[in-house]
Design a protein around this nucleic acid. Structure first.
Lengths: 349, 349
DNA sequence: TTGTAAGCGTTATCAT
DNA sequence: ATGATAACGCTTACAA
């Protein structure tokens, strides 16, 4: 058992615990010779610092907590990766929690991290009510919203403009000549989903189109496949000619269903646009057009901004917003160069 | 700041700290009325237990540490997911470290987890030398190897038979009539890679074929794409007619390169077999034939076995091995039914 | 340069 | 049923 304490090391080396502490932490000048003896004792005994005691005494934890909606989603995996790197550079360790879009689990992790006295919290919240987070922040633990705007709350945030992303997707779909697009995604209580839909619907309606919604319970491949099965079973005159999926996982699943359960072609019969541009979007059966989000950068920026606010004495909150980018691949029809129409490519904003 | 301690709660409620501790932990009978008062005080003050103090006093951490090679790899994401679930059920929290196949980083996490006095360590080691882990185990922290055999060391392990997987892949490739397969993967110092190659080579040589190796530095999409670019640039008579990739990420990247940088067809000109059967293997441009590993089960079993060993007093080590499974899709040629040959499907073992 | 000693916030063992 | 109180292993003034 690693039940060797500084006291035992001190005894073995014939010095005091204070001295041991100093050589372990390099906190004060210790004579070369004594340091040597102490280090020997440490090796012989297999001493390992006790993080709990150290933290209890010092008051802080040198760690950050991150709560994501789904760590199996490559988007969040990238966010976590970026955050992890930034933490490494700052000498912090990153605790990761996966809420699975469940408020109970989210609270559980928030509680756990609070008990561990993390230096800060990075959270992609599940629910609409951010008051729990706000009160945590008010009590002194810096909170940073990740991929979620702080609208109406005294919290900082790092986001990507989802409304703009939704607009890009629909503009592109419409420019390709599709006339009956639908939206697939959910739960709609997630602002990411709601905003992408809002942007998309805005552009659909501007072109005189409705944008029916197929709401899913989760943003997974499986959910996409289920909707896909439903849609390919529709009579031709009710079948959409384009789908905009709230994320790439849904799009991947949807594409699987189309190609597995029907003879429909992508994009000729149904065009597909995803969201996130995960690494695999490039490699799908029909390479996927997607709205790219700078996931790693999001994670990194979240950490850096948090640390920065932590260092400053003021209580200012920062809201950093990135802009997504449409990546066009084969899952959507080429932009229609309709001479009557001027043949302009889709324009943002 | 969450600097409210039990002492303050006790004062506020007019009781002793001992009593507060009891109501917080439900550890002993407390009168209904006093419990009420204490809970009120807790709410009003916003008291949050201090994990460091609690652990220091109690001696254990209620957490497990997991160190994986690459958390962005869906295979390890699944392993972590399975492990996380098992931990949840056991009321433990899971600390996750990503070594990035770097021994330095691996050691760093091992050290960090040791300082946190985790109840056990789940590790997919990077290097060949497991003596560091062995001595950690000897000092009392249970260590469980994940996706790595314990050969020669007094450690427990949960693995999938990589040699068998390699055999399956090559048997299938050969049965499809390919005559010049190559192996893509690396670093070869990883036993997972070495074993898959060993199994594959065994079967290749049994059929009188050599199995050239394109060694990569990492098991990533990018690495696969690089090798792909090299291979499609080869003169036709030197070009392989099948590749067996050490994991699906490589296979995905390789496929991207083939389709992007050449007019070669998959599987007609080049057949591709991956390893892991990640969710996306199903959705690649040409759906990928792959050797499936039960990733979530691996993680779950690792945790359960560890806990089990932890509970028992004996020092027995367990080695649990799962068998992989070939999943055939369109990236490989159909098995050749050569009448002269009996037309048997590929056989395991 | 090194030793001494007072906590950090809990839990657990006693008494009461 | 509740209260005192002694650890747990460490950091950090302050003394020597």
């Amino acid at each position: 058992m690693a039940k060797v304490s500084m006291r035992e090391v001190a005894e073995r080396a014939g010095v005091s615990v204070g001295t041991v502490s100093h050589v372990v932490n390099g906190s004060s000048k210790v004579a070369e010779a004594t340091a040597q003896k102490v280090n020997e004792a440490i090796d012989e005994l297999g001493f390992v610092r006790n993080a709990a005691a150290r933290q209890l005494r010092s008051g802080h934890s040198s760690s950050l907590g991150l709560v994501v909606l789904d760590s199996a989603n490559p988007f969040f995996a990238s966010v976590a990766h970026g955050a992890g790197h930034a933490c490494d550079e700052a000498g912090l360790s990153l605790l990761i929690g996966d809420s699975g879009t469940d408020e109970k689990r989210e609270s559980k992790y928030l509680e756990l991290f609070a008990e561990h006295r993390v230096n800060g919290l990075l959270v992609t919240p599940t629910g609409a009510d951010l008051s729990e987070l706000e009160s945590i922040a008010a009590r002194g633990t810096p909170v940073m919203l990740v991929d979620r705007a702080s609208t109406g709350y005294a919290l900082s945030s790092v986001t990507v403009d989802n409304v703009a992303g939704g607009r890009m997707a629909l503009d592109h779909i419409i420019a390709g000549g599709c006339a009956s697009p639908v939206f697939i995604g959910g739960p709609r209580s997630l602002p990411q989903v709601a905003d992408r839909l809002a942007g998309a619907r805005e552009r659909a309606e501007a072109s005189g189109l409705t944008l029916p919604v197929y709401e899913t319970e989760q943003l997974t491949i499986l959910a996409g496949r289920d909707v896909g099965r439903t849609i390919v079973g529709l009579p031709e005159d009710q079948r959409p000619d384009a789908v905009f999926c709230a994320n790439d996982l849904l799009a991947v699943g949807f594409m699987q269903a189309v190609l597995m359960f029907s003879d429909l072609r992508v994009p000729a019969d149904i065009a597909i646009v995803g969201y996130d541009d995960i690494d695999y979007a490039f490699s799908t059966i029909v390479p996927l057009t997607s709205v790219r989000q700078p996931a790693e950068l999001l994670g990194r920026t979240a950490v850096e901004t948090l640390l920065q606010e932590n260092a400053s004495t003021s209580d200012v909150h920062h809201d950093r917003e990135f802009t997504p980018e449409l990546v066009v691949r084969e899952s959507t029809r080429p932009v229609r160069t309709d001479p009557a129409n001027g043949s302009a490519p889709p324009v943002d904003e």
